[in-house]
Design a protein around this nucleic acid. Structure first.
Lengths: 238, 238
DNA sequence: TAGTGGTCTAGACCACCCC
DNA sequence: GGGTGGTCTAGACCACTAA
């Protein structure tokens, strides 16, 4: 582990432990550099991480301060959907029931989202997923077959992402999501166990690999009364 | 402007212009350092920015490459709600009609969200907002009176954020949001002009100042068929 | 004016990829 | 083995804040 990461962890610990209390000024960068026996640039880099996390803020000419920790507790709620539900719901009971598993040619919409031609086959995976036996999610996923060779119904029932990261060694770069509210469709009544007139929360996303190739287009539908989508937004400049 | 910002802008321009094509390797850091007449650390910092934007990715030992530009076009859709609707909708016709403007003591929920005591008054602002005469938004906002002295109905009808940043000189640090789908309430039928049974997309958020003090708690309700919420998520490590 | 954080340098060493 | 990106240093200058 790099020095700046170690220092970053230690300082974060000091904030959590109360050694650097809320609203207080922490030691200046030169003092920290001497104390940790590193150069000031390394201290700066360590503090950059904590600033990105919203734990500290800095004022040129004044000092470095611990924020009112506002964004701290909420950090745990952060969602990285490209890690897959299996990772997110660690420690909880996740069951995925595969409703459809097929290979087909992409519709124009899918072609556009996945940036592929009409003759490149895609997997179509429809799953009903449940968390702790009650939270229901209906998920429709498309992946280019070329990118994810050897995918099977078995992976769909456990964790597709574990297969992609573990077996294929692919790395994710990010995702673009749109969250909408929608009226329930026939499928929702059936698989989400919701009533006529209940709204549905839909998360539509394209997940990209590190090099920018789209790897997944999916729509995830949730009962309005069981799930919300959380976003943490930390301003960069100023 | 710092050197690394200038270089970052120039390299970004080269990518957009096609001088550094999609999927290609760009010159190595030493070459760039010589070409720009700066040290390699400065080049590194410039490239860090572009990597955060999803324009390039780097492989230790191999080189720096332009991504398949996947995340590029979508960047414009990024939403920074703490800049306020007025800033977001620049160039479009935004009208805010103030339905309620009051000062009151906070409910337990508001106390918790804004991290204040029950005896600290808050502004309550309810507004019906429209964009280009058709997109309707119903917004309920609470702000600690202490933090935003002198707020008036006039600000609520134009831009509260312009007042806070411009007049008061406060700086935002970030926000925490939850997006839900909901059934329409009586208010929605009236002010969003939606029909019975139409779902509503609600964005609930707490906006924080740079030092972590909560500055706003608000709920923004939108017709399901006119608005979605967009999130761009770029992975940091790997 | 003294002290703070932001930037920048010239050089060094290392881990890693590809030939 | 040669080239790549990641880290780190010791010191310097600057912009800004606060007393």
């Amino acid at each position: 582990m790099a020095k700046y990461e170690e220092i970053s962890n230690k300082v974060r610990e000091r904030i959590y432990s109360g050694e650097y209390p809320i609203d207080s000024m922490i030691p200046d960068q030169n003092s920290l550099a001497r104390a940790f026996g590193v150069s000031r640039m390394t201290i700066k880099k360590a503090l950059d991480i904590l600033a990105m996390e919203g734990l500290i803020y800095r004022q040129r000419g004044a000092g470095t301060f611990v924020t009112k920790t506002a964004l701290r507790n909420e950090r745990d709620s952060a969602v990285d959907e490209y890690d897959g539900l299996s990772t997110q719901m660690k420690g909880r009971k996740l069951v995925s029931k595969s409703i459809e598993f097929a290979v087909e040619f992409p519709t124009p919409l899918i072609q556009k989202k996945l940036m592929i031609e009409e003759n490149e086959p895609v997997y179509k995976i429809v799953r009903q997923r449940s968390v702790d036996d009650d939270l229901l999610i209906l998920e429709e996923t498309y992946m280019p077959a070329k990118l994810v060779p050897g995918l099977s119904r078995k992976h769909a029932e456990s964790s597709i992402y574990a297969y992609i990261k573990g077996e294929l060694g692919l790395e994710f770069g990010g995702a673009f999501r749109q969250i909408h509210a929608d009226k329930p469709k026939e499928y929702d009544l059936l698989y989400l166990n919701c009533r006529e007139g209940d709204p549905v929360l839909e998360v539509e996303q394209v997940v990209y690999l590190k090099d920018g190739r789209p790897m997944e287009y999916s729509k995830s539908r949730n009962r309005f009364d069981t799930r919300s989508y959380n976003v943490i937004d930390i301003k960069k400049d100023n």
